[in-house]
C-alpha cells in the first residue's frame, strides 16, 4: 500500500498535510503522535471511510477508490476509534458480521469454524452468547476485534485497539497483533498511544505531528530521545530493554 501526498481539510483547516509513506507488506506498522495529529484521519482515508481532498491511496497497485467495496472488504478491515454499538447483539452475532463480505446472509460451516477461531483468539468463549451491551468496555473492544479477525483480511487497521483494556488484555492484544502478522501473514496498521507497546511490538513506526509525518522508519530509527522529545514536546529517556528501545517520559 502506498500513500502519496494525502491531504485533508476540515472547514479550511488542514488536518492532514501532504502525507506520503509506503506500508511494507506483512509487517506491523504503528502510528503514534499527540492527540489531534491526524492519525485517525489518515486511517480513515486509507480505508476509504473518509474521502481525501487530494493525493492518492494506492492499494495493491490500484487507487483505493476504484476498488469494489465488496472486494475491498475481503482485503482490508478497519476498526475505528469510536464504535459505541447501541444494538443488542450477542458477541457471537457481532463476530459473525465479519463473515458478511464472504457469505452474505448465510453462515456456512466454514464460516462458523472461522468465527469460533476468532472468538478463541480473543478469549471470548465464555462470553459469546452474552449481549455486548452487558459487557465491560474492554470485553466489547475485544469482541469488535474478534469481528475484524473473522473478516480475515490481508490488511487489518486498528485505531487505538488497546483503549479501554487493562494491562493484561492490552498486552495480549499486542501479542495477538504480532501473531496476526507472524502466523497469518497479515499487515497490521494500528494507532497506539502507548509508545512502548509500539516500540516493543511493531516493525515500523510512523510518527505524526500536526498533520504531517514527522518520522517514518524502523523502531530503532524512530524511537530516539531527539525524535520523541521533538514530537511530543516532553523530555524522554530511552532505555534498551530486551533489545528494544523503550522510553520513559517525565
Amino acid at each position: 500500500m502506498r500513500i502519496h501526498e494525502l491531504t485533508k481539510q476540515y472547514d479550511g483547516k488542514t488536518v492532514v498535510d501532504a502525507v506520503s509513506f509506503s506500508i511494507p507488506k506483512g509487517k506491523v506498522i504503528s502510528l503514534i503522535g499527540p492527540n489531534g495529529a491526524g492519525k485517525s484521519t489518515v486511517m480513515g482515508m486509507i480505508s476509504r471511510l473518509i474521502a481525501h481532498d487530494s493525493g492518492l491511496v494506492e492499494f495493491e497497485g490500484k487507487d483505493i477508490g476504484k476498488w469494489k467495496s465488496k472486494e475491498l472488504s475481503k482485503r482490508l478491515a478497519i476498526l475505528t476509534q469510536s464504535n459505541n454499538i447501541q444494538m443488542k447483539l450477542t458477541v457471537r452475532e457481532l463476530v459473525s458480521f465479519g463473515r458478511f463480505p464472504y457469505s452474505g446472509n448465510r453462515i456456512t460451516p466454514e464460516d462458523s469454524a472461522i468465527i469460533d477461531r476468532a472468538i478463541a483468539y480473543m478469549e471470548l468463549e465464555a462470553f459469546q452468547d452474552r449481549f455486548i451491551d452487558e459487557l465491560s468496555g474492554g470485553q466489547r473492544q475485544r469482541a469488535m476485534i474478534a469481528m475484524v479477525i473473522a473478516q480475515d483480511t490481508e490488511y487489518v487497521l486498528l485505531d487505538e485497539p488497546t483503549n479501554n483494556l487493562d494491562i493484561y488484555h492490552a498486552t495480549n492484544m499486542m501479542k495477538i497483533v504480532r501473531r496476526l502478522c507472524d502466523e497469518l501473514g497479515k499487515t497490521v496498521i494500528l494507532v497506539l498511544h502507548e509508545i512502548n507497546y509500539a516500540a516493543f511490538y511493531s516493525d515500523y513506526i510512523c510518527a505524526f505531528k500536526n498533520g504531517s509525518v514527522a518520522k517514518f522508519g524502523t523502531v530503532e530509527e524512530v524511537i530516539t530521545k531527539e525524535n520523541l522529545s521533538d514530537i511530543y514536546q516532553v523530555d524522554f529517556e530511552i532505555l534498551n530493554i530486551a533489545g528494544k528501545p523503550l522510553s520513559i517520559y517525565y
Binding site: 472486494e71 472488504s73 464504535n83 465479519g98
Partner: peptide, 11 residues
C-alpha cells in the same frame, strides 16, 4: 450499526 461499520463490510 452505522456508516463506518457498513463501509468496512462493503455494504
Amino acid at each position: 450499526l452505522g456508516k463506518d461499520f457498513s463501509k468496512n463490510l462493503g455494504v
